[in-house]
Design a protein around this nucleic acid. Structure first.
Lengths: 210, 210
DNA sequence: CCTTCAGGTTAACGACCGCTAACCTCGCTG
DNA sequence: CAGCGAGGTTAGCGGTCGTTAACCTGAAGG
């Protein structure tokens, strides 16, 4: 598994800093001069690496969606063969774990992912949405194998909601006031599984409408 | 229970449309001319009602946080008296229900709430954060009454995560492809309770680290 | 009937921002 | 060592945006 040890290219530096700045202050809130300054060059120097500011955002968002989907497909293939509900549970755990890793390691990207999609050109936006949809549908299939009682629309809503839960990491303590990474990951994992289980257990609706 | 039947004032119209536009395209992505056009007046006419664009955002965010906190306090007081875990469960259900109502009825505000906070003047931002913190702490207390096994940091993380879950409604089907409002509310409610329960049940960590 | 004022209007200013143009300066290579 | 391309630089253009200035209008009040 390609574990990079060599220095990042300037292009990669730019993408990383741009992601951080976009996440912090929004796409329109960041000027190209600031992005340049963040990597030690100034303003228009960026145009040696990208055709424009939009292109940076597009590459970030397409990259995120693509990596999420690719990772999920790989995890699905790895745990293949083991059929039945037990196998499906293993796959679901693997999907959750992968998403949590991503959410914890690339917070700015997670933030961008559902915040700046509308700033893209039509074609890029369509591509990103298509990748996102495939990712969701992949989850939906696995969730319905683990919880066959769930209808497809309910499963899809549940998946979106669990994404909301897992993607909440940027809100968990700006500083290191929260528990260690391992504890946080385990907590999120448990909650995700519990949320899916509760979604499937509609007999839990013993609460009177308020 | 002030159920308004009279027509909204121009000021309220402006706030509502501004919220929608800010949520759709980001604070910096919307011009004052657009906000004006959305309420039938044009550009600078807004300055008869607000000292500036920033002030609209500030009033929106302070209003949201304040309403959330006020509602939660009211619900806490209403269900007071009934002590013990059963009473706490009722309060938690009431809090969840209130938050879901808000998330479903005021999607744009929910979106703004955790997206544009950094665009505020220092003083307003501090006020909003203080209101948010009180709201979170109120939840944390109730959650820990229902699930005493949860440490305070874990409970706080869990609460933030459940907010992420409940606030995911803007991502659930832009159009009406999703189930009805009542079904969605019940699903979210169940998932929130399930997530809290799973957070508290740390014996569920039988999964080997990947 | 005159005044006042809330709530609009259009014109325009100044700042900022994305991007281009023109130029510079290395390090490599034939 | 000449040439050249990669990767910078600064100056500046054109457009947009928030805000202000100056003016208009219609309804209410004495």
């Amino acid at each position: 598994m390609s574990t990079r040890t060599d220095a990042p290219t300037r292009r990669e530096q730019i993408l990383k800093e741009a992601a951080r700045l976009f996440a912090e202050r929004g796409f329109h809130g960041v000027g190209v001069d600031e992005i340049g300054a963040a990597v030690g060059i100034s303003g228009p120097g960026l145009y040696r690496h990208f055709p424009g500011k939009d292109a940076m955002l597009a590459e970030l968002l397409v990259g995120i969606s693509g990596r999420l989907l690719t990772g999920a497909k790989r995890r699905l293939a790895e745990a293949d063969g083991q059929a039945g509900r037990a196998g499906a549970e293993a796959v679901l755990d693997s999907l959750i774990e992968g998403h949590i890793d991503f959410a914890l390691d690339d917070r700015p990207l997670i933030t961008l992912h559902d915040r700046e999609l509308d700033r893209l050109r039509e074609s890029d936006r369509k591509l990103v949405r298509q990748l996102q949809r495939q990712y969701v549908e992949l989850w939906v299939e696995v969730v319905r194998k683990v919880h066959p009682e769930l209808s497809e629309p309910a499963a899809r809503s549940a998946v979106h909601s669990v994404f909301g839960l897992l993607n909440s990491t940027p809100h968990l303590g700006r500083a290191g006031t929260l528990p260690g990474r391992g504890d946080t990951a385990r907590l999120l994992h448990r909650m995700a599984r519990g949320a899916f289980a509760a979604a499937a257990d509609s007999s839990a609706d013993r609460l009177a409408a308020g």
